[in-house]
Design a protein around this nucleic acid. Sequence first.
RNA 1: CGGAGCAUAGCGCAGCCUGGUAGCGCACCUGCUUUGGGAGCAGGGGGUCGCAGGUUCAAAUCCUGCUGCUCCGACCA
Length: 440
Amino acid sequence: MRLSRFFLPILRETPKEAEIVSHRLMLRAGMMRQEAAGIYAFLPLGLRVLRKIEQVVREEQNRAGAIEMLMPTIQSADLWRESGRYDAYGKEMLRIEDRHEREMLYGPTNEEMITEVFRAYCRSYKDLPLNLYHIQWKFRDEVRPRFGLMRGREFLMKDAYSFDVDYAGARHAYNRMFVAYLRTFARLGLKSIPMVADTGPIGGNLSHEFIILASTGESEVYCHKDYLDFPVPDESVNFDDVVGLQSIVDKWTSLYAATSEKHEAAEFAKLPAEKQVSARGIEVGHIFYFGTKYSEPMKAVVSGPDGIERAVHMGSYGIGPSRLVAAIIEAFHDDAGIKWPEPVAPFKVAILNLKQGDGATDAACETLYRDLAAKGVDALYHDLDERPGSKFATADLIGVPWQVVIGPKGLASGTYEVKKRADGSRETLSPAATLDLLSR
RNA sequence: CGGAGCAUAGCGCAGCCUGGUAGCGCACCUGCUUUGGGAGCAGGGGGUCGCAGGUUCAAAUCCUGCUGCUCCGACCA
């Protein structure tokens, strides 16, 4: 992408409403724009990151055996009356009325709807196990939206729902998602720690929050230090291996880890002092097993081998891709701007032409840009007539992992300077070596 | 929902107390000079001062009401 043909409204100063670093940087880097309290438009740069995150989430859900579908944002109130949550959910739910004065709502979650879909088609234990998910916008009318995307009212959520014939099956479904989450966050460059969680208004009795540590985190969390170095299962993990998955989950739940709601100071105090981690955390995923809480009232039942109908055991599993955009920035930034982990970066490379209009530099940039494109490398070519300092600042701000600096000075010796945004290290490389390094 | 603020050009702000030509920096446009860490000079464009009432010869400024947004708290994926 040529910057001259892209839409990247960089702000040099920070809008005053932005308090936390991810919010500030997203506004400054031209990633999003606030349209109302807690409601944001994604601008092109922000959307690129959101899509990358979404794709990683999708791939890992699919790998774990979940099947993607797409449910609507608007739901009928009747569905929620069946589960009893229409009244229970309170003012967080945005209630709307259509032209026929039917009561509708903008979905804050989809347990009711997915249960309705399930019961319409599935009658036999032979239809199980089943895990359906979608990635869709949700709305929760928070009393006080804040921190930009971190705590918006409208947010993108991946929510998966599992259906099993009994607890054992549901437990395995839960473990699949547990492991899928470990892998998902690791691929996004994050160290996530599963913590025993409060089940909240959704209910149930088996639940973990996946937390990443960040000094700006919303809640206080406590865990054993060893979690930070636990190995994450690689892609060879067999999601059908019941015993194998259980052992991974057992390992990842063997040590102390809890959010403040579930924190037990006495237990925590038993850890050796040097193993006690007390930090701020950001919740980026949440998984629940809630049994027959919805299947019973909504009559989602299947016949077992014995011919007897039983309500299915369910679980739900959420990840907030839009929140992750902010969470990743909280984890990876410095004073100059964002430092995207490569898997979610909006572009892999930024080409900085230090002397736009100069025949030799223009030609070198064009060649590199074309060669990278030919290798399938997504590059942003800064081809505007700006001064070098301004181009450096922009590149640092938007956080592209690699910067290739091309100017008369280097070209005199036939070289480019390649800077790695993550650690600021620089190398002077030949064009061929540059291409080789960046197309790996 | 309790408490506290803010609202003046795209962004950051001054002006308000003490009513009288709407300003500054950045950004934007034109020209020239510049070009390895947010350039310099010169010229220029852009505003129903959040909205609605009221007071006054005169309101960004004083008064009343409303709306939007932010922060702290309670709540929360």
